[in-house]
Amino acid sequence: MNYYKKYYEKKNLSFEDYFSSLTHEDVKHVINKTTLNELDFLTLLSPAAEPFLEDMGQKAQQVTIQHFGKVMQLFAPLYISDHCVNQCLYCSYSINNDFPRKKLTLSEIEAEAKVIAETGIEHLLILTGESRLHASIDYLKESITILKKYFSSLSIELHPLKTEEYRELIQCGITGLTVYQEVYNEDIYKQIHVKGPKRNYSYRLDTPERGCKAGISKVNIGALLGMDDWRKEVFFTGIHAAYLKHKYAETEIGIGFPRMRPHLGDFQPKTNVTDKNLLQAMIAMRLFLPESDIILSTREQPELRDHLISMGVTKMSAASSTAVGGYVNKETSHSQFEISDERSVDKIKDMLHINDYQTR
């Protein structure tokens, strides 16, 4: 389903015209509402809402505690292969980037798992580059069989699969799926995905739904902020999440807000998404989808992460490595992107406990 075009056709919506029509009273009215519709969500993403971020943040805190309590789930990413068949302008793993590629053996995967588990992390996100040859279903199932001995939950972020393939991985022990659309603007999508299967916009857009149909428990989506106007991208992420949540009520839908980070290559994001923009995006999403997880990664600086945890965040990564084999061999340099928060799991837990959060 092309949510981007469908919503335009349904509402005949011009973002600029809508934003220019808003008043401060409109924003105040939305903040005081209990349940928000799609245009209320857009109102909270508008420039007119910027003077009310403190009010929105207080409401987001209340809503989050109401639905989740003061509990934060900590997770770690584990990259098991960086082989990729796609040419994407913004990604270090792009096939045109020349560096020694690596795929972990099963014994290397177990070694990585032991190091991560020793930090106290109980939830793991398994990642690969997008290559079916190097990350086959059989390889993934063998990897999952090893990893589930060390962690209470396993999620995946890899090349899009068919519904029946997701079912196979669920039977093996997977409970979560993360799929970032990268950008919902189809024209920009085609520009930055030059070659490879990932160039198929519609197939990627439908991937979260295939995961839901397969019966996966938790599905996380998002856009890589900076590729287009962040207000539009966050809006369509929210519309996509609301659609999945409505159609697949048994599936927990979460939203991530990754921003571009330095990577191998010289691609620069189209727009600069400031910390203030990110804050507005997250609290608007929390008020629009009060029961959905909001995920915050180590892409962001420690000070900002500490500030954002009370604004609706329910899951955050800790002590992450974005390099294949990067937990055992910390000198491994070929990471997918640079991280900003390098604190240990214990330090993250200490920060959360000081703020009266429980961790799980």
Rank of each mutant, 00 (worst) to 15 (best):
K162A: 15
S152F: 09
L169E: 05
H134G: 07
S143H: 10
L127P: 01
R167S: 13
H134V: 07
Q191V: 07
E142D: 15
G173P: 04
K190H: 15
G211I: 02
N200V: 03
D138T: 15
G211E: 00
V183I: 14
E164L: 12
K141G: 13
V219K: 00
P197E: 06
L154Y: 08
D138L: 13
G173R: 05
E157N: 12
C172I: 08
I170Q: 08
K162Q: 15
V219P: 01
A135N: 04
E168I: 10
K149Q: 15
Q191G: 06
C172P: 05
Q191H: 11
E209P: 01
S131H: 05
Y139I: 12
V219C: 02
S153M: 10
K148W: 11
V183E: 00
R167Q: 15
K198T: 03
I144K: 07
K190F: 10
Y150S: 09
F151Y: 11
S153I: 09
G211S: 07
F151M: 10
E142Q: 15
L205C: 02
K149E: 14
E186G: 04
K190S: 14
K218R: 14
Q171N: 14
G129I: 04
N200P: 03
R132G: 12
K198H: 08
K213C: 07
F151P: 03
T163S: 07
E130G: 02
K149H: 15
T178N: 03
Q171R: 13
K198D: 03
Y180V: 01
K149T: 14
S131C: 11
T207F: 01
S155T: 09
I192H: 03
V194P: 01
V219A: 02
S152A: 12
L158Q: 07
E186Q: 11
I146Q: 08
T128L: 07
C212A: 09
K195R: 13
G211A: 06
K162G: 11
Y189A: 02
I146M: 09
Y150E: 11
Y139L: 12
I137L: 15
I188S: 06
I174L: 13
G129K: 03
T145R: 11
I137W: 08
V219E: 00
C212R: 01
S155P: 06
L169N: 07
V183H: 00
R167G: 09
E186F: 05
K162V: 10
D206V: 02
N200S: 09
I126D: 01
G215V: 04
H159Y: 14
G211C: 05
L127D: 00
L140Q: 06
H134C: 11
H193W: 05
I192V: 15
K198S: 06
K162T: 12
